[in-house]
Nucleic acid binder design. Sequence first.
DNA 1: CTTGATTTTGAAAATAATTTTTATTATCAT
DNA 2: ATGATAATAAAAATTATTTTCAAAATCAAG
Lengths: 144, 144
Amino acid sequence: MKSTDKKELLQKYLHEKGLKSTVQRDDIVDAFFKTNTHISLEELLKKVKRKNPKIGYATVYRTMKLLTECGIALERQFGDGQTRYEHIPDDSHHDHCICVRCGKIMEFENQKIEHLQKDIADKLDFTVMNHKLELYGFCSKCAD
Amino acid sequence: MKSTDKKELLQKYLHEKGLKSTVQRDDIVDAFFKTNTHISLEELLKKVKRKNPKIGYATVYRTMKLLTECGIALERQFGDGQTRYEHIPDDSHHDHCICVRCGKIMEFENQKIEHLQKDIADKLDFTVMNHKLELYGFCSKCAD
DNA sequence: CTTGATTTTGAAAATAATTTTTATTATCAT
DNA sequence: ATGATAATAAAAATTATTTTCAAAATCAAG
């Protein structure tokens, strides 16, 4: 899905819920689409402020909640005490390797694991909406 | 590993680090060993207080950090804003299904996934120390 | 057993992150 | 344009975690 399509998705969602489009929301969404990392609210606010210095933390917070609700962004916690947001990938899901020494985050994806997850969930009579697979350890540089 | 062995492990760790054994630590560790859930500090404190009402939150907090350091407990965050502690299983690793409606947590384990993870990490030149696999969705009761 | 250096404790304070409140401003269907 | 409603920024409140500090407990060495 292109980012323009995602923006349309958001517009549709807003309209359905009787919410309004605002310049702030647009600015925040634009800034988010320009990122490709796992960004924290703090970091995103900094980015947005470069374009629109008057924007407040709370607005960024609320907008990211919105994006999460309508399935455009994903909330993640890697255990450093900060919630981070990332893009929901179109088709396939990706997972993470997190280096516990330097904090480097690498992404990977694996269809076999996805299938196994589905099998497991079926057995437990559980309907999976989303999942997280995180490998914690040392990246090549930090594993001495 | 039996809980008595784990307690020995902790004693050894304390001694190595020049730390001291105290009744509070024993009480907290005992309470933790009696749990089989993913317990929050709040909940654990409540449990411990039934045996030793004078114990404080900070002591529970610090003791669980200790247990985490020496590899007896594991810190987890399921996205509800509270850190939870669980036992590190002896041999095999287990993962979680979390119902996003009622909060129910189910555990499962799957060796095939473990192996696949190892393969992936090898390709990325990453040394896995620990991992988390969480499936978020609806349990049978909540999926209407 | 005492001593005394060091660690631990509980309570409270500090920090940090998230969430809510509020008065004001902006949006948008009519 | 109007007016009902939602959104905003800033500040305050809330929540969870972490640190501080004076008093108490531990424990190795005498």
